[in-house]
Write a protein that binds this DNA or RNA. Structure first.
Lengths: 205, 205, 205, 205
DNA sequence: GATGAATGAGCGTTCATTCAT
DNA sequence: TATGAATGAACGCTCATTCAT
């Protein structure tokens, strides 16, 4: 067989694999992993049940590859090789971009949140997770400090929570959800949190 | 010998039902509803599989009763019959209390978040959900307005996101998570959001 | 305990047993034996599941006692101690009476036919069955002979089939079934069969 | 290797389906529908329990397909497109044929009678049943009238009962049953019933 | 005599996975 | 590469039966 046709076969394999993963992701996100059967995936993808096992070792394996692939593509979308401190516009761009990524991959993120709640995601991807996440957190912390925060650790907790909650809203939201309003509110609020020098209202409980 | 009195039977029933629900909640929270089998529940509860069906009509029924019971106990913990506007201390108390409720029922809230992600929870409990939630949101909105917010709708989105995200952190956190620090950070941040009169940093994208 | 109260207890036992058997018969006839649960019987009879086993050894036992009791009461309704040959009126009375017995106990006969189809009933009641049935058949055969039948064995087959079929119709019939018309048709036809001296129309196939 | 052709798959499916239906019919007839388990069917057919559900949606579905198939083959065996009135020989042929069909499919008819007793079979197959049965009854009624019956409605009741009873005997009979003798007796008797102009012996009760 | 909680075997059914073709 | 028939373990659930009270 010529190398050319070998390459063609390879392309077919890649396409089929992608097709199966995309179909599975849709169903996993809609119904959950355990409530989705391999038959369903195969049927929706228009292939035979048996063929699935030509591309994946098991149903679990499909899930793992989806998650792995998802993470890879997410982090490749963030350009975190940032030397200095973010400008305000860069920060805003980062937030906006993260919203865009999530709303464009709502299925993946539904799945991600579901898994995250059940298992500690950091454990799932061990070193890799921290390795990828750390630079983002560091950059964010530097930015908060630069804005004059009186308690950067607290602020990053608050802002991180706010982002997580907002992402969750986007993921679970219906089509009529005012995504823009939320996005702007989160951006504004994060500046308020970083910049404000108010004394804390609270006494330790 | 005479048969057990009806009170005795009633006591047994209540106790067993509680045992089954608690056991099921643990497993549902850990593994998810679909990944948990009735056999597992029965085994962990130390009873026979068949007995489960003496107390619940179906596996679905167990879930429904857990959620119903959970909602009942949550809302009974919030005293929302509030006429005027919250004081700062009342607001702080409300937030602290909500954190306490969630961290004391982490299993229930794990389950709740998981279900919420798959099916819009508002749909699940339709009328009741909105009926119970609305007064809380109204009270919160009034408080935000009273604090002089320049855009209460945006602020409630931001604060709501922040709470949701923080709750999610508490639910998924390990035992070593600095819950107090998070709690304080969220309270401080929410005041910053409401009080700050800064002009918006953002231009519409 | 006085003999009197002992007798009272005995009466209670008999009544309860009868109640259970009647309730079970209704359900067995409607739904079939296997599709009827002991719980159903107990519930419909207004007693506890456990009590059933105070009166019957098993679910099978209930069925057996119903059938035994049914047979006893059927044969006790036929006065077959008949020396000579039946008169026409006695024959007609016998047929009419058999229809009455069946339509008054449709539930029992439904059950009887169902069991008969699955198992050879003669086997179920071995000696007893033949012992009870034989005199009836002998009396009938004598009557047919006396009416001048040219082939009594054939005629008893035909008349026997006709009765069996008619009984089956009564048992499965709705409330609007013209039972009288059927009864009269069967009586008339049976006389035609016995009396007619026609040559056979048929050649052996 | 290339996969089986779709004709090969089709052949396998048809053969297996037939095997399952035949095995199930045997067991349903012997033990009744409810007393027969899917495991039993599979074991007797020499396949796995799960495979059954590759061919039938449910246990109920097996029953339905058996009955449907049975009815189809029965009615296709009667040539009822009969314009004029039957000759005597045609009538005899019709009766003999019906006996043959039933004794060749005793299992199906056992099942049929059992179901008929519990649920009015006309209800089960509603329209179709009446549509198929009506022409047979009409042809029979015309024949009875042509033979000079003084009360055709009564005679068809009597003959119908006789046939039903005789069929039931054939179905429940052991291998030693004198089927020929019964068949001839029924044919003779039916002519006697139709032709006889005797006055009725009976007075209304 | 009477209750119903409790058991355990078995039911109908589903499904991840294998394999001959 | 691709098919779908086939398997077997496990699922949710039912029910005849037992037993402490």
């Amino acid at each position: 067989m010529s190398p050319r046709s070998s390459k063609q076969f390879d392309d077919i394999r890649k396409q089929k694999k992608k097709l199966i993963m995309e179909t599975a992701l849709e169903l996993f996100a809609e119904q959950g992993f355990h409530a989705t059967s391999v038959s369903q995936i195969a049927q929706k993808a228009g292939i035979s049940k048996g063929l699935t096992y030509n591309y994946f070792e098991s149903k679990d394996d499909i899930l793992h590859e989806i998650i792995e692939e998802g993470f890879k593509s997410i982090y490749s979308n963030f350009d975190i090789n940032h030397d200095g401190v973010l400008t305000d516009d860069e920060y805003i761009y980062f937030i906006r971009q993260s919203f865009r990524i999530i709303s464009e991959n709502r299925n993946f993120w539904k799945l991600y949140f579901t898994i995250m709640i059940q298992h500690n995601v950091a454990n799932l991807f061990e070193g890799e997770y921290i390795e990828k996440t750390q630079p983002i957190l560091t950059t964010l912390l530097d930015f908060i400090k630069a804005k004059g925060s009186s308690d950067p650790e607290a602020d990053i907790l608050a802002i991180g929570s706010m982002l997580k909650g907002a992402y969750l809203m986007v993921v679970t939201s219906s089509d009529f959800f005012p995504a823009d309003k939320l996005e702007n509110a989160i951006i504004d609020a994060s500046f308020k949190i970083m910049q404000s020098h108010n004394k804390s209202k609270i006494k330790q409980s």
